[in-house]
Amino acid sequence: MHYPASISKLIDSFMKLPGIGQKTAARLAFFVIDMKEEDVIQFSRSLVEVKRELTFCSSCGHITDVDPCYICEDKNRDRSTICVVQDVKDVIAMERMQEYKGLYHVLHGALSPMDGIGPEELNVQSLIERLRDDEVEEVILATNPNIEGESTAIYISKLIKPIGIKTTRLAHGLPVGGDLEYADEVTLSKAIMGRSEI
């Protein structure tokens, strides 16, 4: 399909977003054309502001507009526990639960040699530096339960062991309400290994 150059550029821009294909990008582009000009200007300002004003917390790596972030600044948080997560979205998910009251450390990814992601590409060194603080008593490894997440958790636990801090891993297994017949082998294996007495 042939579009004017400005629409083609907008479609190409939308296609850079995850999960947006050619048809959805075209639909979004034509939606933008129908928007009021002031709404389009505000939308574009919001995009620019997100890129210019947000940064990563120098302590935990969470996304923030002030440094340190609101979680690290909160004096009511339990400073004896650090939950290590792969991504900023994981912090948001944990906070939505409203059960965990400790601090976080965001790795910004997981080990994946196939994708060229080694320890140097992750926010690991600053975690080890944080653990030298006498306040920290436990590190919870909350990386994803896949090959990359598991290998990252094992790697980090080996780094923490010499420091002498308790290291735990989030429980994995069957979700509440899930059916055995739909569970994959890894999930079933984790569920068997993590079984508890009732």
Rank of each mutant, 00 (worst) to 15 (best):
residue 88 V to Y: 08
residue 89 K to Y: 12
residue 89 K to G: 13
residue 89 K to M: 14
residue 90 D to E: 08
residue 91 V to Y: 00
residue 91 V to F: 03
residue 92 I to Q: 03
residue 92 I to G: 00
residue 94 M to L: 15
residue 95 E to V: 11
residue 96 R to S: 14
residue 97 M to F: 12
residue 98 Q to C: 13
residue 98 Q to K: 14
residue 99 E to Y: 11
residue 103 L to N: 04
residue 105 H to F: 08
residue 106 V to L: 01
residue 107 L to I: 01
residue 107 L to P: 00
residue 108 H to T: 06
residue 108 H to F: 11
residue 109 G to N: 04
residue 111 L to V: 05
residue 111 L to T: 02
residue 113 P to I: 09
residue 113 P to A: 07
residue 114 M to F: 14
residue 114 M to V: 15
residue 114 M to Q: 10
residue 115 D to R: 06
residue 115 D to A: 14
residue 115 D to V: 08
residue 116 G to D: 10
residue 117 I to V: 15
residue 117 I to N: 01
residue 118 G to K: 05
residue 118 G to S: 07
residue 118 G to M: 08
residue 119 P to T: 09
residue 120 E to Y: 07
residue 122 L to S: 00
residue 122 L to M: 03
residue 122 L to G: 00
residue 123 N to C: 06
residue 123 N to I: 02
residue 124 V to Y: 02
residue 124 V to T: 07
residue 126 S to K: 14
residue 126 S to P: 13
residue 127 L to A: 05
residue 128 I to L: 13
residue 128 I to W: 05
residue 128 I to N: 03
residue 128 I to T: 06
residue 129 E to P: 06
residue 130 R to N: 09
residue 131 L to G: 05
residue 131 L to F: 08
residue 131 L to R: 02
residue 132 R to V: 12
residue 132 R to P: 11
residue 133 D to A: 12
residue 134 D to H: 07
residue 134 D to F: 10
residue 135 E to G: 03
residue 137 E to C: 13
residue 138 E to C: 08
residue 138 E to K: 05
residue 138 E to V: 13
residue 139 V to W: 03
residue 139 V to C: 08
residue 140 I to Y: 07
residue 140 I to R: 02
residue 141 L to H: 02
residue 141 L to N: 02
residue 142 A to G: 05
residue 142 A to I: 11
